[in-house]
Simulated scan of single mutants.
Amino acid sequence: MSRESIERYFTAFNAGDTETMLALVSEDVQHFVNQGEMRAGRAKFAEFCSHMGVSYRETLRDMVIFVSEDGTRAAAEFTVHGQYLQTDPGLPEARGQTYVLPAGSFFTLSGGQITRITTFYNLQDWITQVSA
């Protein structure tokens, strides 16, 4: 179930299907955003997804998923292909710039749901790309 949950999560992400993503995370999910604060709970995760959908259009490619033997931990490595649509406060001005970034996410799973998501990418690389 854990590999299937992670695959469904990323399929939903690529489809812009926030409802499916929300159904896959626990009510008390811990979402650790790259270079940001931890957001606790499904409602905060929903707010983050909504914000991201307005400011960015992203597709994740070259996906490789790793799952622990006991199915409680997972990781994924992928390449983000994105477009910066609307200026995010504190970041460079959005002008429809495109970017390509290597990234990864780490997960904890329990009871068939995702209870932790931690995502990493090189923010300075992204800033350099959208500032060019």
Rank of each mutant, 00 (worst) to 15 (best):
E47R: 04
V64S: 13
L22R: 03
I6F: 07
N122E: 15
H31L: 12
H51R: 06
L24C: 08
D17F: 04
T115H: 13
R57V: 05
A40I: 09
D62T: 03
T20C: 02
T98Y: 07
F10S: 02
A40Y: 01
I117Q: 13
S131E: 06
A74P: 06
F10T: 02
N34S: 13
A94R: 04
F66I: 10
R42F: 00
L91K: 06
T20Y: 03
Y121R: 08
I114M: 09
F13C: 03
L60R: 08
L101R: 06
P89Y: 00
L85C: 01
I114Y: 12
L123G: 10
Y84T: 02
G71V: 06
L101H: 01
F13L: 02
F13I: 00
P89M: 01
Y99M: 05
D70Y: 03
E19G: 09
R95H: 10
A74R: 07
M38Y: 00
T79F: 07
T79C: 11
R39S: 11
H81L: 09
S2F: 06
S110M: 14
Y99N: 09
Q124A: 11
G41Y: 07
A15G: 02
R61C: 12
D17K: 01
Q129N: 10
Y9Q: 09
H51E: 10
L22Q: 02
V100R: 14
I6W: 00
S5D: 11
E37R: 12
T87W: 00
A132E: 13
D28S: 12
S2Y: 07
D70A: 09
G71T: 06
T119D: 15
R39K: 15
V29F: 07
S131R: 09
M21D: 06
T72Q: 14
Q129Y: 07
G41I: 08
R116G: 14
R95V: 04
N34F: 00
Q83L: 00
L91Y: 01
P89R: 05
S131C: 04
S26M: 06
I65T: 11
V80T: 07
L22H: 03
F13N: 03
E27F: 02
I117L: 14
V54H: 12
F120K: 15
M1C: 10
G16T: 04
Q35E: 15
R73L: 12
E58F: 02
A12R: 05
L60S: 02
V29E: 11
P92I: 05
T128I: 11
E58L: 06
E7S: 09
A12M: 06
F45C: 00
T118P: 09
Q30Y: 07
T119V: 15
G71S: 08
E69P: 08
A75F: 03
L24I: 13
S2R: 07
D17N: 13
A15T: 00
S105W: 05
L91M: 04
S105P: 02
S26D: 09
L85W: 01
F107G: 11
L101Q: 03
R116L: 15
H31M: 12
E19C: 00
C49Y: 07
L24Q: 11
A12I: 01
M52K: 02
T11P: 00
E27Q: 12
S105N: 12
T98M: 08
G90V: 03
Y9W: 13
N122H: 13
R39C: 08
I117N: 11
G53W: 01
